[in-house]
Design a protein around this nucleic acid. Sequence first.
RNA 1: GGGCCCAUAGCUUAGCCUGGUUGGAGCGCCCGGCUGAUAACCGGGAGGUCAGGAGUCCAAAUCUCCUUGGGCCCA
Length: 1274
Amino acid sequence: MIKQVQSTYNPAELEKKVQENWIRNNIYRKVKELRSSGADFYFVDGPPYTTGSIHLGTAWNKSLKDTIIRYKRMQRFNVRDQPGYDMHGLPIEVKVEQSIGVKSKKEIEDYGIDKFVSTCKNFALDFQKRMTDQFKELGVWMDWENPYLTISPEYVEAAWWTLRRAFDKGLLISANRVLSWCPRCETALAEAEIEYWDESDPSIYVKFPLRDEEGVSLLIWTTTPWTLLANMAVAVHPDFSYAKVTYSRKDGKEKETVILLEDLAEEVGALADWDEYETSELIEGDDLVGVEYLTPFLEDVPRQREITGKWAHRVIPSSTVVAENTGLVHIAPGHGPEDFEIGQEFGLEAFCPVDENGRFGPEVGEKFAGMQARKANANIVQALREKRLIFYDHTLEHRYGHCWRCDSPIIYRTTSQWFLRVTQIRDMMLEEIDKVRWTPDWAGSSREYDWAVNARDWCISRQRYWGIPLPVWKCQCGEMRVVGSVNELRGAEGFREGMELHRPWIDAVTLKCDKCSGRMKRVPDVLDVWFDSGVSTWAQLGFPGSRKELDRWWPAKWITEAHDQTRGWFYSQLAAGCIGFDRAPYESVLMHGWILDPQGQPMSKSKGNVIEPSEIIAEHGADALRFYLMKANAPWEDIAFQHEGVKNARRTLNVLWNVCNFATTYMSIDHFDPLSVDYSRLSSVLRPEDKWLISRNEKLKNEVAKHIESFELHKACRSLEEFILDDLSRWYVRLIRDRMWREEGDLDKTAAYKVLHESLLSVAKLLAPFCPHITEEIYQNIDGSKGSIHLLDWPAPDLTKADDRLEGAMSLVKEIVEIVTRERQSRGVKLRWPLRRIAVKTNTKETLDSLKTLETVLISQANLKGVEFVNPDEVWKDMILSVIPNPLAIGKVYRQWSSKIAILLKSRPAAQIKESVEKGEYSLGVEGQMIKIEQNMVSFTTSLPSDVTSVKFSEGEIYIDFHITPDIEAEGFARDLIRRIQQMRKDMDLDVEEFITAKVKASTKLIEFFKVWKDHVMKETRAKSITFTEQPGGESLVSWEVEGESIEVGVTSLHTRESIGQFSAIPGLSRDSALGLVEAGYKSPSDLKSLSEDAIVAIRGVSKNDARKIAHYLLKIGIGPEQNCPDCGNPVKEGAATCPSCGKDLVVRGRSMPKEKLIPYLLRIPRMNKVKAELLYDAGFDSIEKIESLSKDDIRRVKGIGAKTAEKVVAYALAGGFEDQVSCGKCGTDIPPDALKCPSCGADAPIEIVGEGEVEDETEANGVDDYKLEASFT
RNA sequence: GGGCCCAUAGCUUAGCCUGGUUGGAGCGCCCGGCUGAUAACCGGGAGGUCAGGAGUCCAAAUCUCCUUGGGCCCA
């Protein structure tokens, strides 16, 4: 059954209601149940990090996922939708540190690792709950009751299993490497954990004196002076050209000789402000290799003196050297990853004198020991200056890495860490990237590929607490075991079933060494948190605990995350998948963008430009937010978030809602049942516009599915939006309004209902994955049979119903309507005023024919009286053809007559001349002579008739006739009157079905117009009567200005609805009878007191049966014969003509009156006599109201009444004759308009009837005044 | 410094792959209309050196190169 929707779209209220209904009716579970037999679709949720609140990016991410999941479910897939949360790691540790007020690892250990880790867990669980609530608010449907958590024992076990696989394959190793290190967090950092921003550092050019050539130095450049303490070599590019350059001052006091890249000599000299330089020798890079130099801190750092090796403190070749700064690079293998690699190659020691806190150890000597490495820069530069080794120094702003959690600048240190040797499986990863379907494809082929190509071995160990413990147990004897499952720990010392697998509890578990029987202890490290999420595809399936689910679902069919996950989850899964299962764990990846602030900058708390999703949702609703995010851009592009965009999306949804409101209003009034009608029954009555909407709708189904399949969700949304706004709301609803308003039901109206209903239903379905709330509410109102829209199947398009020709024709109609509208506007002719006609001429016959099928649409939408179609090869018949005489040619033949001929020619019909001339010649008589006009003597032009404009359109030309005829003017004004009355109805807050009476005052011209259109006006405005009078009155009275004319309108509600309600008190009374009573002017049962049963039966619409019921009711409730005077309220006797108390005449205007009562009123009209009055009465004009509303023509139609009398009646009514007071001819007292006797002296109202009546001859044009009727009113 | 993506009206964007009438929309602005969907809706107008430069071509928003600016990822 169709239910009328709420009249306004209130997203907050609607979404709350819908979500509550989902819960109450268990809809989510029902959907899963319904689809459980469908094909499996393994979706994997990239677990968001539990920070506590979601940001817009997360909202977008989850909305995308939800949309695809819902779509897949409508496609009958059985979608696995377990949400995940990433809960370990430094961010939470840092938060907990802040909350308990500790700053270092030592303080954490003093506080107690158990307490610390427990707090971390509580934080994470709390955040998880909060985020879940926010996701639910967005309308995201995932299995919130059963999320996968990276901190659960099963999850930890899955990570262990994977590491065990790596170990078995030789991919898990422990090694000394140079790594980024956070001196505050005292842990190694992965590349993914470093954030770069500008930092100010010393930039120094340092001289490394050659051992064997006095006065000559290698010139190196560095921004990390502190690493010079660990300098081991200097690298040059073997293919570059270097030079020995001597810089000098003009005064000759100073000079320096250094070796640097030849091309940079000038630049470097200018930098250090030397006056002159001279190149004394060119040296190829190759030739510098092996040259020995004195490392700057040889004296200060004891270890430097102990360094040995073939390449120690010598120049070495490296192709990584670039031609910048000096072209020579200082190498400290202990403090730089590339340096380390070069060091490995040349057997250089990775000397790393910096401890985990970033401080120099004793090995650097007294001078620097204990200093923070980066803070020692100034001291080191000073020391170099003292050694006179500084060539030039300044300060430089450059990008520098920082810890992602505490923002400390990182340093590079050499430590022993655990690595996944992903470099060993790089080829496999690259192949797998190629096999995956990436959207857009460059996300894989370029970005992920690029990252994997450059990937280094992955350091997965962290020297922290809150993480998956590294499952490595080591014995003092050197034996090592990697545990791949909890099962392997059973029976171990310290193990308890169901124990916490986190630190510190797991640390208490020791294993027995197989080799030496000693105790194996766990390596204290935890895993890099980025590794956690890498195993999610099998961890959430309970693998390795059980294999069943893995076999059923794995690998993931589809995942989606933002582009930063190239190095994150896309990669961690790829690596983990290749380790665990020798393949990528996903088949299709959609890489989406970021939400930036309105200026295009990333949102961040520090910038203070964060926009909260909850605020947007509170204002515009989750549906609007989702719709905006989906349609704003292609998913893979960033969105600069715009509030206006959300507002706009909401507006679109609002329009959809309004269409639905419109549809359900009428459908529910008419009890339209969509199920009882099907298209096969309607096919013969469908109008072209119906078929057009069906065509558009079927195409839409096709398009939306196509776009979703290719993840072009923006296109899907834009297609939907266009359909809703342009096709449905702005066009189809406009076209069918007239049909909807029709009171009687017929197939034509039913067809419109059916088509509108069908397309609303299918739009709701297509939009359901994007906007799950509003579509649900719409569905509940227009159908609801299946319990929820989300239980429905995706609508399959039926393209046999698509009709391109019809669509093309319709868009031409739209174009023409727009042109006409535009032309109206420029001429100030409003749409309410019909145009006489337009003529349409097209370029092809086909176009013309297809336009003809839409003629009625064109006429109604452009508001025309008619359309003329002109064939492509024809000239519009009303074009004015004129002849242009050619005086030269005429003059040659008929010299003296030529000017006369010209004048004569112009006076003849041009078409005739043309026709004749084309056949041969045209004959013309001039002064008795026959003149022959030949073709060369005339030419022709066509021009537009006056008031006609021609405009070109894409398929031809149209002629618009703006000529206003009186008929058009009348219709225009009538429409204006309708519109004013409708406005007043609205202002009076009247029900759509309510009846009214209207009184109108306007100029005589307008009144004549209105009378022509009276029936139409009454019908349109549900007026029971319209009276034209000088003194309009009513419940509402408004003066309008229309086209310079003033119109005064009084509207009175008949309170039908209310009154019908009143009559429902009468037992068994039918609605029709009640309506009859109301329409006769009775408002409540007490109004009926004065009526006899016969009188009641006489009322139109009241059945005999009902009249008896009414009479019975009146008797029963004891309403006596008495009634109350409507004027003074005092009781009066039934049937009394006047009130005994106030003298008021009790005749109610508008109610039919007995003949003998009405006639005296009519006799007050000039030219009226008794006979004519009776004729009028007998013709059915039996009340004052009816008489007042008559037009001249109405009256003349009454046999026996002539034009003059008719005129007088109208004039009398118009002048307010029935309204105006008259003064008593005897005593001068005012007599009320509807009284017949003077209330003061009782004299008859001043009307003198001079003679008996005679019937006028109806053909009599100028009837003689047979009677003198005098009334003393003015 | 490298890889990828992006740049079209005040704002958000379509068109670019596959070069070819006057570069389409929406929001905002100005003007008007409509009024039984109405705290809606519709129409019109103004507003564009298609980031800048060079090239290819009969023809470039579209293809190529360079520059500038923005985003992501890396160094």
